[in-house]
Amino acid sequence: MLERSGSALYSALAFMVSYLPGIVGSVALGPLADRLPRRALMIWCDLARAVVVAVLALSVATEAPLWLLTGLLLFAELFSAPFDAARAALVPDVLTDPADFHAGSGISRTLFQLNQTVGLALGGLVAYGASAQLALWLDVASYLVSAVILLVGVQHRPAALAGAPRGPDVRVAVRSVLDDPVRRVFIALGWAAGGVLIAPEAVALAYAVEHDSERMGGALIASLPAGAALGAWLIARYPPIIAVRMIRPLLAAGCVPLLLSGLDLGVYPTMALWFAAGICQAFLLPIMVVVTLLTPAERRGAVGGLAAAGFNAAIAISFVLAGWAADVFTPADSVFAAGTLGLFVLLAAHLAWPGRELDAVLDPAPAESSQEPSR
């Protein structure tokens, strides 16, 4: 898209489209993770994606029109939303100890970011070295393997809302988030900060082209998720209480590399800066852990879907704005502006921080002992 249009905005729009199914699917289908057995839902989502991608592979072989291929790809992505909601809601049922859940979530996020870094590169090599059709059939195989692992390795559990009357799940999820100060602030912070700090990915290709280093565009894009993988692995090694206290310092530290990117130091120094910014994205892990643990088990799918939809929307908006700023000014200026916005997000988080409520959740013993009569 960048090569054809010469516009960073159009390039960012191409990335943004991939997030649209996540926005719609998370809101509309996320509550299914509460209404249906979560393991079964994940298996059916894997099978559905395998079927759709298989149709996509066959369509590629018959040289089907581009609009049909794009539609099939976006349709397959719709099933990722309920799968992710069910997975996020199921993990606390498997890892019941908060410390274990925090560590397990760190491993999961590390692997996810490594998949973004390595998986995309390997997929591109397969598509370039062999064929796009082979890459799609390997994708089909991965979904089938995932379904078998879930069937064999995960215990069946009944639906969290089994037998409950149908209701406005999304409305209830919104109300449960708004009524709780910790969930309200943490989810809003995840949306705002996550959207701001991912801005470099939107202009990485444009930055590489501007510096006559088109071949480094993929490495620039990968630098952020590579750093995020390391950051998630590091923060998962700390106790949950310490990790929560690191949220605001990490957000502040994550803005610094984006601000320094405004100096336009060149491809390799900028790659190092964005890798460092990715490490600082570790603050997203304790946000997700706290929100999940504070949400009743029977509402984790709906609340998780709502949070995922907002996060995807924030990323989509960030991509558009970053691409527009890169066209009007430069890619480096666009990333600098994102770092500046990050400081405003940090200020808002500081002013709205639910310190008292958070202390009561993380360390309730002092609050309880303070109410006991002295002896």
Rank of each mutant, 00 (worst) to 15 (best):
L90G: 01
P92Y: 03
D93L: 11
V94N: 05
L95I: 14
D97A: 10
P98T: 04
A99Y: 11
F101H: 14
A103Q: 09
S105L: 09
S105W: 04
G106F: 02
I107Y: 13
S108A: 12
R109I: 07
T110F: 07
T110G: 08
F112A: 15
Q113E: 13
L114I: 14
T117D: 02
V118D: 03
A121G: 08
Y128M: 05
A132C: 07
L136K: 00
W137I: 03
W137A: 06
L138W: 00
V140W: 02
V140T: 06
V140P: 03
L144A: 04
L144E: 04
A147W: 03
L150M: 12
L150T: 03
V152A: 13
G153C: 05
G153M: 02
V154F: 10
Q155M: 09
R157P: 03
R157T: 13
A159K: 08
A160M: 04
A162H: 14
A162I: 13
A162K: 15
A164D: 07
A164T: 10
P165A: 11
R166W: 15
G167C: 07
G167W: 05
D169C: 07
V170N: 00
V170A: 01
V174T: 06
L178D: 08
D179I: 09
P181W: 15
P181D: 10
V185I: 14
F186G: 00
F186A: 00
A193H: 06
L197T: 09
P200Q: 12
P200T: 08
E201S: 05
A202K: 01
V203N: 00
V203L: 03
A204M: 04
A206V: 02
Y207A: 07
